[in-house]
């Protein structure tokens, strides 16, 4: 558990359309249910047109800022492989990184003017102690729908956090319609085990 005045910050990052904002909403609800003060910040508006999406989630006994400062994010969850590199200035040497194997080409890579960065995981592992690569799309397929990849990644995140799994599952049940609950719980569990 957290010390009284400690605040934890998680940065969720990826590309518009990957379900990042939904994932950060679920995470906030979980933190609230667990009794924390919580704030989250995101930028959207132009995001649905393929731009970068980020969401800071911060929790503790009292949180002022919805934005974390550079160097102080504890955990980065990158929903797209190369996006992890874009936010390293937010991390410290003890930060953990969860990174999805999925690659989404930015325009410059699509038209062949720039290469997609190579050896990303190798680079991250050299710099950080805990780097977890998750093939979220593959696990999401196993859960029944590739669209549950965001919940797989939440599961992976939950495995690094000391929050009762029942709370996560309670909020997931609340978030989705009955038809989709089972699939998302399955995706969450696959993420925890990943």
């Amino acid at each position: 558990m957290l010390k009284n005045d400690e605040i934890k910050s998680v940065l969720l990052a990826g590309v518009g359309g990957q379900g990042i904002l939904k994932a950060s909403d679920i995470m906030c609800a979980v933190m609230m249910e667990a009794g924390f003060d919580v704030k989250k910040s995101e930028v959207h508006g132009m995001a649905q047109r393929g731009g970068c999406v980020t969401s800071h989630v911060r929790y503790g006994s009292k949180v002022y800022s919805p934005l974390e400062k550079a160097g102080s994010i504890q955990t980065l969850v990158s929903f797209e492989k190369m996006e992890s590199l874009r936010y390293l200035h937010y991390l410290g040497k003890d930060s953990s990184i969860i990174v999805n194997s999925e690659k989404i080409n930015p325009p410059a890579v699509n038209i062949g003017t720039m290469p997609y960065p190579a050896d990303i995981i190798k680079y991250l592992k050299k710099k950080f102690k805990l780097v977890m690569e998750v093939d979220a799309s593959d696990l999401a397929q196993k859960a029944g729908n590739v669209k549950t990849a965001n919940i797989v990644l939440l599961g992976a995140l939950a495995s690094l956090m000391a929050i009762d799994q029942n709370i996560w599952e309670k909020i997931i049940k609340k978030t989705f319609t009955e038809k989709l609950v089972k699939m998302n719980l399955e995706a969450f569990q696959l993420g925890i085990n990943a």
């Binding site: 400062k69 590199l85 200035h89 930015p106 325009p107």
Partner: peptide, 15 residues
């Protein structure tokens, strides 16, 4: 600030 400079990677402008 952070220990690690942000990496120079292809930008992702809205399209």
């Amino acid at each position: 600030g952070g220990k690690f400079p942000a990496q120079k990677i292809p930008s992702r402008p809205p399209n």
